[in-house]
């Protein structure tokens, strides 16, 4: 049997959008499992709600715009948007929060700008910011508490009928630490029932689950290391420098492991459409998200600032791209600026 000799070019099969998006979805599974196990079934219910709404609206807007429905639905990008939104919304939020958010993401975040691949802002974070600004009560009072078991039936009643019991919900660690800094020392805050010494295990496991998924994304070459590394490094540096004085600033461990930092760094800011394009641009973009996240978390009104930081850097991304163009072959210097 003759061996088949392969001649060059040894090109691999082209990566399809559905492969990329499918891998992202698979890598989100550990995160969703951790969220469900440690916090609430609400995340899964929100996920189902968001995905169904997103698919319906996507099909509807594609039909209105006379674009091929099956081709765009099966690229799974809208499912990723829905999953990111579901992972960031509070699990006991009423059902219409999820529906309104998904509608904002799909219609205003994506299709108004021309659909797949043309959204200047991250659709999920646009929806999150809009919800946070428009419905602050529902978006800040429905966060789950670790170690309180709520059955599926009760969660369904909470989401669809609004029967939320006070004991199920509480402040997030970032929020709690910041609120109580004015009156308590770091030791007193950490001794509270929420922190119980160091950090609630659930929050750490969820962050580690997102981190694991993100590392797989880097290994599968879906994303490059530039964005997550520069964002986490900047945030860690700032929170270490300021956090030495843990009586007046939130320490680095809480910044990195008790919020949406890992989800943001690996899954949200790495949206290939709305982030910067070149590798150097990505480093600038990630560092910008890190700085803005720290500034807004520490001195602003919002305890977890990933959404706003991402949107602000999305806004700056086209400009960053103008000034971080790589050198082209045959030129000694990179072409910079707008000409």
């Amino acid at each position: 049997m003759p061996l088949i000799t392969l001649s060059s070019p040894h090109s691999a099969k082209p990566t399809k959008i559905s492969t990329v998006m499918g891998t992202v979805l698979l890598c989100m599974i550990p995160g969703f499992i951790a969220l469900t196990v440690f916090f609430s079934y609400g995340y899964l219910i929100n996920l189902a709600l968001a995905v169904v709404t997103a698919l319906l609206l996507e099909a509807g807007s594609l039909a209105l715009r006379k674009r091929p429905i099956k081709f765009f639905i099966t690229d799974l990008s809208v499912v990723v948007t829905a999953a990111l939104l579901a992972a960031s919304l509070p699990p006991f939020a009423p059902w219409w929060i999820t529906v309104v958010g998904t509608a904002t993401a799909v219609l205003f975040g994506k299709h108004i700008f021309g659909g797949m691949g043309q959204n200047p802002f991250n659709p999920a974070m646009l929806a999150y910011a809009l919800l946070l600004v428009s419905f602050p009560v529902q978006m800040t009072t429905n966060w789950p508490v670790v170690d309180v078991y709520v059955s599926i039936g009760d969660t369904l009643r909470a989401i669809f009928a609004g029967n939320v019991v006070d004991g199920w919900v509480g402040a997030t660690p970032l929020d709690y630490y910041k609120l109580n800094l004015a009156t308590q020392t770091a030791d007193e805050i950490l001794a509270s029932s929420l922190f119980n010494g160091w950090l609630p295990a659930g929050w750490v496991w969820v962050s580690l689950a997102w981190l694991a998924g993100g590392l797989v994304l880097i290994w599968r070459r879906i994303i490059t290391w530039h964005l997550p590394v520069s964002m986490i490094a900047t945030l860690a540096l700032l929170s270490l420098v300021f956090g030495i004085d843990s009586d007046s600033f939130t320490p680095a461990s809480i910044h990195l492991l008790a919020g949406a930092t890992m989800l943001g760094a690996f899954f949200i800011i790495t949206d290939p459409v709305s982030c910067a394009t070149s590798n150097r641009g990505k480093l600038v973009f990630g560092a910008g998200v890190g700085v803005l996240t720290y500034v807004i978390r520490t001195w602003g009104n919002y305890p977890d600032a990933i959404a706003f930081a991402t949107l602000l850097m999305n806004f700056a991304a086209p400009f960053i791209d103008h000034y971080t163009k790589p050198r082209t072959y045959g030129h000694t210097k990179a072409h910079k600026g707008h000409k």
Binding site: F121, A129, I296, G300
Partner: peptide, 25 residues
């Protein structure tokens, strides 16, 4: 229907939304 100034307005509105994140600084 959204081409030109309309999408510019929409984008500006979203940017204004993002700037609300600075509230309280």
């Amino acid at each position: 229907p959204f081409q030109g100034a309309a999408i510019g307005m929409v984008t500006a509105g979203f940017m204004s939304l993002a700037f609300m994140g600075f509230a309280g600084l």
